[in-house]
């Protein structure tokens, strides 16, 4: 390779260097540090002692960890299912060019850009027993009598959070599915039409199979996003009622910044990391094997 050309190529390294260094320092390094910290009794207030596997040992016997993991999984399953179903419905409705469809798309995507925290404050107000519109409406319609304290019962608390999350994120699911659908060649549908296939049949034997890569990606995004839920629980349910809605990230926050035990917090973080890596890998492997077919 000639001199100037090689120099030009080396310039590429200079271009990527700042970003890569930042990623190394603020991401790769912290992952390593987290792993190291998890072997320490590491107080937020300063002291640290090496304790070997003690944090992991404690983690295995910690009922609140397992409970939280179970809850987060349940929440993830419900949110993922709800997002896929609603997302599919909306995507099917707005995928074709039609007068006014652009407006509908905009409306459905609009909540996506609002933060989870902001959306939670909004929900807090709408659902408040005394000043909220929703309980007031329910009372006026005679659906309920007396106080409507949605965050005092596990099913209603979870329902409200799931509705909030679907409202806030389904626009994204819809967009992804929609662009996946639009990428499917029209020839397939025309062939199906010639064969006289029903709508349902067309959906299940053409749209869905060809949409697999998109669906898999939506799945990965939704599952990871749901496993990392924090804001909405921290603000709306505050873990209640009776500690039934504590997602894993809340536990990590609590151990580190309320109990000041960064070491234990780090062990939980590593646990979460491993779970997410396994989940993502499984989903990607499934996607890959399907693609190979």
């Amino acid at each position: 390779m000639s001199g100037p050309r090689a120099r030009r190529q080396r310039a590429g390294l200079l271009f990527v260097a700042p970003a890569v260094l930042l990623v190394l320092g603020m991401f790769v390094l912290p992952v390593i540090v987290t792993a190291v910290m998890s072997f320490y009794d590491w107080s937020l207030l300063g002291q640290r002692t090496f304790v070997g596997l003690a944090n992991y040992d404690r983690l295995l016997g910690d009922t609140s960890w397992w409970h939280s993991l179970g809850f987060t999984t349940l929440y993830t399953a419900i949110v993922t299912a709800a997002l896929l179903v609603v997302g599919f419905a909306l995507a099917t409705a707005v995928r074709h060019r039609r007068r006014g469809v652009g407006l509908l798309r905009t409306a459905f995507v609009l909540p996506v850009v609002i933060g989870f925290a902001t959306a939670s404050y909004l929900t807090l107000w709408l659902m408040d027993d005394r000043i909220g519109v929703v309980p007031d409406l329910l009372r006026r319609l005679g659906v309920v009598d007396g106080s409507v304290s949605v965050f005092s019962h596990f099913p209603s608390a979870l329902t409200v959070v799931v509705v909030l999350v679907v409202w806030k994120t389904v626009g994204l699911t819809m967009l992804l599915l929609m662009s996946g659908m639009q990428a499917i060649s029209k020839d397939f549908y025309e062939a199906a039409q010639v064969d006289g296939a029903s709508r349902a049949r067309t959906f299940f034997s053409i749209t869905l199979p060809l949409l697999r890569p998109t669906v898999a990606m939506v799945l990965v995004l939704t599952v990871i996003g749901s496993y990392l839920a924090f804001d909405q629980f921290f603000i709306l349910t505050q873990g209640g009622p009776d500690n039934s809605t504590i997602p894993v990230v809340y536990l990590i926050y609590r151990a580190g910044f309320i109990d000041f035990n960064l070491g234990y917090s780090a062990a939980m973080s590593i646990g979460l990391m491993v779970i997410l890596l396994i989940l993502t890998t499984v989903q990607l492997v499934v996607l890959r094997s399907r693609e190979d077919q």
């Binding site: 991401f27 992952v31 910290m37 990230v249 990590i252 580190g256 979460l272």
Partner: peptide, 21 residues
């Protein structure tokens, strides 16, 4: 690949060390 790998490991799981750093 290093840059993309950060997509796989969410920041919420490195909060304790990020804080220390």
């Amino acid at each position: 690949l290093v840059v993309l790998s950060t997509l796989m490991i969410p920041f919420q799981s490195i909060v304790p060390s990020l804080y220390v750093i």
